[in-house]
């Protein structure tokens, strides 16, 4: 089962005050990530499942633990739809 999200190669980043713009140098698609989504993006290295990402962020930000699962699901859905991550 492919349950490890991984950033696709060749995408460039512009980081501005903890938020991200993800873009491809030859394509017109641009993805905006707020600070939470930026953290999730950075954890998409192919070694963590979404459940493990949830656990890591919930431990790091216990005050936000209630909203983290929904944020992760939404972000990963968006990043998948925008084709900037792949599942391995």
């Amino acid at each position: 089962m492919k349950d490890h999200p991984r950033r696709k190669p060749d995408y460039q980043l512009e980081e501005l005050d903890g938020e991200l713009l993800i873009y491809h140098p030859t394509e017109s698609n641009v993805v905006y990530c707020n600070q939470t989504a930026s953290l999730i993006w950075h954890l998409c290295d192919g070694t963590h499942t979404s459940a493990e990402i949830n656990a890591l962020l919930s431990e790091a930000y216990p005050d936000a633990a209630a909203s983290i699962p929904a944020d992760i699901e939404s972000t990963l859905h968006t990043l998948t739809q925008q084709q900037v991550i792949e599942w391995i």
């Binding site: 512009e14 501005l16 005050d17 938020e19 713009l21 140098p25 030859t26 017109s28 641009v30 905006y32």
Partner: peptide, 29 residues
Amino acid sequence: LSPARAAFALVDTLVNARNLPNHGMPELA
């Protein structure tokens, strides 16, 4: 708007992106 949201919003109004390095993203940022 935050700088990231601002740059993201400006993408829609950039008309010569394909003629620029990296579609103009570093300059927008």
